[in-house]
Write a protein that binds this DNA or RNA. Structure first.
Lengths: 336, 336
DNA sequence: TCTCTGCGTTGAAACGTTTCATGCGCGTGA
DNA sequence: TCACGCGCATGAAACGTTTCAACGCAGAGA
């Protein structure tokens, strides 16, 4: 049904080896022959079969990426950065969604292994180290994204520092009773941000922190947490909320301001994490911790490609620093 | 470096054919042999090479999808729906971003053709019909997403009806001077929504519509449009804005309310399109037109798989109906 | 004239899987 | 007892590419 390199060779009156040379090392073939081959290709509408090429090469040219949640703007930005860098050097980026589930993550890694991917980028949900070690043994390098590791190269943001930044900001505004609204503490980023938060709290005897853990890092999960907070007696309510990401924060904001009768930042100051594009257009524009998401993605691909080319390379750990972006949700005086 | 089916066969003391049978038609092999083969697979850590399998099979089990903008929640939801349906039947979904650029779109289609994809889903940026016709000739079916077509199956939403819904709502609130803030009119959805809007305007002699076209369908593009509107003298300003999607609407909202001194919905009523999750947590919660994004993705995969199995099938066109979701940005009285 | 170089081209091997015609051994019915 | 059918297992062929050792040939140098 499809023209193969053999058909092209026959049509152009050359051998298959020559056709392949025209495609892959044009300098090795005379202009006249190349010309004839190109003509044959065009006439037959020949399209290279990547499966065969890959089989021969032993590995794919594609890079696999498993993310916690593609619908989260932080991750889609990250993916964007990675894709751009990958395409730049002739690689494709295959995206998978783990939904923070270890089994979905594992399925994608299996798939990537079957495809003999050029390399794999993971923002891990479960404990992937053993699995990645297996991949490495089979010649597939990996880079962890948005999390550090002792065993693999990684590109991450200093989440402990981010937690410190956030809580230090809240404390500097005079807030004393902080709630940390977060997802499962098994997610490293969630735990690290809490760790940073606690460090700051430890330095201020009169400040307390309470952990409100939800099942997911999504807007509805945040809304649930916010509803619970709004239902409390005012005296019992925290005067500040640090949310583990902006989606949670937006959910909290929604239920505090729109359903409950709690004002932000009057009654409760609110700070998110990631500084997604929507943070600034929220009901009350959201103070947040910004991460250089695109740069993270691009850097991860960069490192991955280097390791794929030179497997003996030592592992590296790039750590970006987060940045505080102050908006109305923590402003000293209520916005408007 | 990697164990092959041959190694497994040797280890288990059977032929390669038998190993393949164990993997693909377990019923054809005696339990005892199957047992031995499974043991060998485990011992050697054998992982099937998908490239070889694909080469033999003639086509990949993956489905390719090209979207206008993966970072747009409408599309990531859509992709999510598609992915779930695809995985359900043992297919992988490969995602590509066209960024509304015809050349990027073309690159992905080339890639998908080289990979002999099982099928292709496209939300088209450029004019893809000819290209898809080529793919079809080569045995790769395609389904258009979020756009109708005469030549291919499609799953879309009635954008003309959506435009009507939006503007009828604005008119019912007594608004007379409507601005349509949109992206390039070459994008079908953008044009269709305008068409719908114009139909309603045509029925009301005292209502006018003005088109404010931007280069992209993004938040910053919307902000630019909003800034321009805010800069006008109040008498010269529209009393309602219909934005071609929620991202634009959020941008408009941002610049009207936060930079300019225009109140929403007091001075200007604002309606978006897509009803993304963030619409409800905007500065002023956004009235919008909801589309069943996940169902669209799932349905598209469904149809694609049927066509892949039965290429002679007649083309189908599924059209979902949009739905109006009223929030504060068009409420009769200002919110709060 | 003969040998040596180097350029262009050739054709076969190899990548790892699935498929399919073939073969073998055993029990069953005639 | 023989033929037959049935259940399993076999191994070669095929998929389409890239690579590589080998080859032919023309021109240069001896």
């Amino acid at each position: 049904m499809n023209a193969s390199v053999k058909d092209v060779a026959a049509r152009a009156g050359v051998s298959v080896g020559t056709v392949s040379n025209v495609l892959n090392r044009p300098d090795k073939v005379s202009p006249a022959t190349a010309q004839r081959v190109h003509a044959a290709i065009a006439e037959l509408g020949f399209v290279r079969n990547d499966a065969a090429r890959q089989l021969r090469a032993g590995r794919s040219r594609a890079i696999g990426m498993v993310l916690l949640d593609v619908a989260n703007p932080f991750f889609s930005e990250l993916a964007r950065g990675a894709e751009e860098r990958a395409v730049e050097s002739g690689h494709a980026l295959i995206l998978g969604n783990s939904d923070e589930k270890a089994d979905r993550e594992a399925r994608y890694l299996d798939l990537f292994e079957e495809q003999r991917m050029h390399g794999v980028l993971v923002s891990p949900a479960g404990d992937v180290d053993a699995r990645l070690e297996l991949l490495r043994e089979r010649g597939i390098p990996s880079v962890l994204v948005d999390r550090g590791s002792d065993a693999f190269s990684s590109v991450s943001v200093d989440d402990v520092a981010g937690g410190e930044l956030a809580v230090r900001h809240l404390v500097s505004l005079g807030r004393k009773r902080i709630a940390y609204v977060c997802g499962p503490l098994t997610i490293r980023q969630v735990a690290d941000r809490l760790e940073g938060a606690r460090r700051v709290v430890a330095q201020h005897p009169d400040v307390t922190i309470e952990v409100v853990s939800q099942a997911a890092l999504t807007v509805p999960a945040g809304a649930a947490a916010g509803t619970a907070l709004a239902a409390r007696a005012a005296a019992d309510r925290p005067d500040a909320v640090f949310a583990a990401n902006d989606l949670l924060a937006l959910g909290v904001l929604q239920s505090l301001v729109m359903l409950g009768d709690v004002s932000v930042p009057g009654d409760v100051a609110l700070i998110g994490y990631d500084d997604i594009a929507f943070a600034r257009s929220a009901v009350v524009p959201l103070t947040s911790i910004r991460q250089p998401s695109r740069a993270i993605g691009a850097t991860a691909v960069e490192i991955l490609l280097e390791e794929a080319a030179e497997p003996t390379l030592e592992k590296r750990a790039v750590v970006f620093q987060p940045e505080l972006v102050v908006r109305a949700s923590t402003a000293a005086t209520p916005w408007r």
